[in-house]
Design a binder for these strands. Structure first.
Lengths: 207, 207
DNA sequence: GTCTATAAAGCGATAGAC
DNA sequence: GTCTATCGCTTTATAGAC
């Protein structure tokens, strides 16, 4: 399990597996596919992981590790006001979902997240909670600085992350062009609804 | 394939399959599971569908049929202004994703939606396009009536539907209470960002 | 460390008796 | 319409030679 002799080859195998699962999902990817992709025989994969479940764990660990590192970097970056920080966090999340994960992988994550019974599912749930907490803290900070009005951070983040995550299911670079300006537009529209109300606002659809 | 003698039993089998797929996803559900759930032998399932692919088609057809009926009902309902109509459409979508589909089923839909190469995938893509078109029309109508400013309906709908669909991944009735007020809050916040700008608005984070 | 070979299990699909 | 039985295939996992 630990990369004993050849960590580079370990990374190569993992990269190939990630790319395949990115395209076809975890269920649609067999160990034979992985072996073919790296040019070794199926039986030799045991050198790099002892089971398919462990492969899935390794991939998930890598993704969440990357995500947490980037989130921590943004959270600690200098020279950003709270709104810009939240914006950067949302940009990262959108890109993480669309470019790096792709919808099949996102879907696999979701499936694990929605199986909280298993130990792995519980662990995933905790990771997701931590991940989301960073966003909720950023929203709360915006409220504290009167950039946003007082809002429920959990609800707001669920809405924002939904809009961002959903990009994985509709965004295509050839059709829509670069992702960033699209996401910026979405964020702009969303943030307007979070501003402090000058006199009154937001109320309009009372039946 | 057509329910020749016992349409009730057909519906029962389909219900059981839906419930299983709701829990474990399409790949995680074997025909043996379905047969066990309805108390017949695996081989007897051919009476109700000739292959697993056809089972998936039947389930998808049922869901999309229900969705299209409801959407048409809302689109044609009397006494709603364009904003209220859009709001009702979004409410339906949120409930459709959370309560009726649940995240694993939504996830299965996504998986099929993201395989546009196959004929079935192409058909699903067209269904989704039609489905989404109803929402985009509603947004465009709001813009025409100056309830919203001029916006890109596709982008706006993608953002709104993302926030709604995402509810399937975080909403739990025991934790959060009734779904409707939560969704209303999300819609309220989003709509504020779509209003015509009185003088200037929305610009605040220019670096 | 990689290979061949195979075990063991589960899958969807099908044939034929009742 | 349902059953039993089985086929053919794919999958993961493992054992042992080089």
């Amino acid at each position: 399990m630990p990369p004993r002799r050849d960590p580079q080859k370990h990374a190569e195998v993992l990269d190939a597996a990630i790319e395949l699962i990115r395209q076809k999902g975890i269920d649609g990817t067999s160990l034979q596919d992985v072996a073919d992709a790296v040019g070794i025989k199926k039986g030799s994969l045991v050198t790099y992981f002892s089971s398919k479940a462990e492969l899935a764990d390794l991939i998930q660990a890598r993704f969440t590790e990357v995500a947490e590192q980037e989130l921590a970097e943004i959270a600690g970056r200098e020279g950003l006001n709270p709104e810009q920080r939240l914006r950067e966090l949302l940009h990262f999340h959108a890109e993480h979902c669309t470019v790096r994960l792709s919808s099949p992988v996102l879907v696999s994550f979701m499936q694990l997240w929605s199986a909280p019974g298993t130990p792995a599912g519980r662990k995933q749930l905790e990771i997701r909670r931590q991940y989301q907490q960073v966003f909720e803290d950023a929203v709360a900070e915006c409220s504290r600085k009167r950039i946003f009005r007082k809002v429920d951070p959990e609800l707001v983040v669920n809405g924002l992350m939904g809009a961002m995550s959903w990009c994985a299911f509709w965004y295509e670079e050839e059709t829509h062009g670069p992702l960033r300006p699209l996401v910026d537009s979405l964020i702009d529209m969303s943030f307007v609804g979070l501003r402090p109300r000058p006199r009154r606002a937001a109320a309009s659809s009372q039946t």
